[in-house]
Simulated assay, not measured.
Amino acid sequence: MIGGFIRNIIKDKVMLLMVLPGALWFLFFSYLPMMGTVIAFKEYRYSREGFWASIWGSKWVGWDNFKFLFTTNDAYIITRNTLLYNAVFILLGLVLSVVMAVVLAEIANKKLAKVYQTGMFLPYFLSWVVVGYFAFSFLSSESGVLNQILSYFGAEPVNWYSEKKYWPVILVLVYLWKALGYNSVVYLAAIMGIDKSLYEAAMIDGAGKFQQIKNITLPLLSPIITIMTLLAIGKIFYADFGLFYQVPRNSGTLYSVTNVIDTYVYQGLKSTGEIGMSTAAGLYQSVVGFVLVITSNYIVRKFNKDSALF
């Protein structure tokens, strides 16, 4: 048995070498750090004897670190904001990414399509710090582009960083602008892999573009759409820290509509320095995400096993 295992390794050594960098990355940055989750149940205090000595020597406090998230007056607000924003991001991101991929696939001039794709893909590579300054150039109360446009038409300027009612829309628009091009690449690649003879047969039968999209493209995209949605559901308790911290510029007056679990934990860590609290929040998000993925995948398997993750 051992000999067969070694022979398989030698046989597939090229493939294994290709997988090795990714496997090492997951080992060192995903699996080994999991041993540190014990900090979530301890009152962590740094010791000069070393990191692991600090962990095992710290006082065991059980569930006390989790109370920071659940007993605070802001628990409902940060949970609501995290869930609702992510639900909107998943829904609109899915629909618009698929639409964008279909539109790009239908452009006859492929050089022009690549230009459009590159233009939509570039915002993904910008850091949220840069995006935050872009947003500020539009929303600044003194010299912002939007206020200049409002003044040109005789309207009163708006102090955007003090008006909460606008920010749910602003955050959604900024997120979609940055992420849409990147998310559409997966669906565009899937469309490019569809057998062109299916479309040719549909054209012979008299099907128009919309009928081809409805009866060929979307049904064949449904497995990848389901998988991407399941993966997104697993991160529904995670918020994009840069989006909710940098774009609103950490304005205290906007906390009721911009504060999410990640920003709240960061602010709590800055004020209290309790590493155990932030570890507890990360563990809570991971466990809930795991449960949601398992549950969602179970539901999908009931309807279509081929579209499930596992």
Rank of each mutant, 00 (worst) to 15 (best):
Y161R: 05
K59M: 13
L150D: 01
G154S: 11
L94G: 07
L283N: 06
V38T: 12
V38H: 02
S140M: 07
A53P: 00
L218E: 05
L32E: 04
G181C: 12
S47F: 04
V247H: 00
S141A: 12
L198D: 01
M100E: 05
P157E: 08
E49I: 06
Q211N: 12
S184Y: 01
L146K: 08
P223A: 13
S251Q: 14
W52C: 07
V287S: 07
N73T: 13
F290K: 09
F290P: 03
I275W: 03
L188P: 06
S54D: 08
I294E: 03
I224M: 03
D205R: 10
E43I: 02
I233Y: 07
Q267I: 09
T272K: 01
K110Y: 06
K164G: 05
I294V: 15
M277C: 00
Y85V: 02
Y284Q: 12
T79Y: 09
L231A: 07
K42F: 00
P223E: 11
A53S: 10
M228R: 10
V257P: 01
T258Y: 05
D240N: 14
P33G: 10
K114C: 08
Y255R: 14
G62H: 11
G276S: 00
F134K: 11
F237P: 00
Q148H: 04
F66T: 12
L17T: 11
N147M: 09
Y298P: 00
I2C: 09
T37W: 05
D74C: 03
S271T: 14
K67H: 08
M35K: 10
I294G: 02
Y199H: 06
N109W: 09
F29Q: 00
S162H: 01
R301Q: 15
Y85G: 02
A101D: 04
S296T: 08
A135I: 12
V287F: 10
N304P: 02
S286M: 12
R7N: 14
Y124G: 09
F210R: 05
S97E: 06
Y85E: 00
G268Q: 01
F125R: 06
N8P: 01
L17G: 05
I227H: 02
I224L: 02
A40M: 03
V288P: 03
I225W: 02
K165C: 00
K114D: 13
I216N: 03
A113H: 06
F121M: 12
L17I: 13
P33A: 13
Y199W: 01
Q148S: 09
G208L: 13
S296N: 03
R48T: 14
G154R: 11
V130L: 15
V14H: 09
I149R: 04
F210C: 03
A281T: 10
N215V: 08
L83P: 02
Y116K: 08
G181D: 07
